[in-house]
């Protein structure tokens, strides 16, 4: 899904991917899995394909500006960052290293899914523990005994949960 063919393109892709996520600066864009391709257009012009996590994610514009700045510093005269929607980004695109960093940062990483369907969520009262794709573990104490407080948290990509063992609330990067 990530494409770069020449050594320079590979280098530019690495640079674009090294930009920190503006909302979760512990993650790089490569670890988040949102930089799709880098293509040279002549000697010093480059096109970058970026995919948003959510259609309305306001961080996309900041990401594009940061990528542009980094690539210009690397000698590119013209940098065009293009937003692509298809194939849709999935939390499965977050790398293993990205998941580890999220957990370290206090955010429960998304669970890896096996198929491409939306994750079926539980039916029942709005606060419930059950899930069908394995437990969401507390990033603080590792307990699997956690409950959902709200499907939507500080950003669209996260849900708010609470650990029933250590009683700490935490964000969960929800699966899409």
């Amino acid at each position: 899904m990530v494409t770069a063919t020449t050594p320079l393109e590979a280098e530019l892709l690495r640079l674009a991917g090294s930009v920190p996520d503006p909302e979760l600066p512990v993650l790089t864009l490569a670890e988040l899995g949102v930089v799709r391709a880098v293509r040279l257009r002549g000697g010093d012009a480059v096109e970058v394909e970026l995919t948003p996590t959510y259609t309305g994610c306001p961080a996309v514009e900041a990401m594009a500006l940061d990528i542009e700045r980094v690539l210009r510093e690397h000698g590119m005269r013209e940098v065009a960052v293009r937003t692509v929607l298809s194939p849709a980004w999935s939390t499965d695109d977050i790398t293993a290293e990205g998941r580890r960093k999220l957990r370290e940062f206090g955010i429960a990483p998304p669970r890896v899914r096996t198929e491409g369907e939306p994750v079926p969520l539980e039916l029942g009262p709005t606060r419930t523990r059950r899930t069908e794709t394995g437990p969401v573990r507390c990033p603080h104490c590792g307990s699997a005994d956690t409950e959902l407080l709200s499907r939507f948290s500080s950003t669209a990509c996260k849900a708010l949960r609470r650990c029933l063992d250590c009683r700490e609330p935490f964000d969960h990067f929800k699966e899409v």
Partner: peptide, 23 residues
């Protein structure tokens, strides 16, 4: 392309409405 992306977001909207309707 848009629908493929948005359908995943809307699944959460629908779930939110369903939970509240039940409650």
């Amino acid at each position: 392309p848009l629908a493929g992306k948005a359908v995943k977001e809307v699944a959460y909207h629908r779930d939110h409405a369903e939970q509240w309707t039940l409650r």
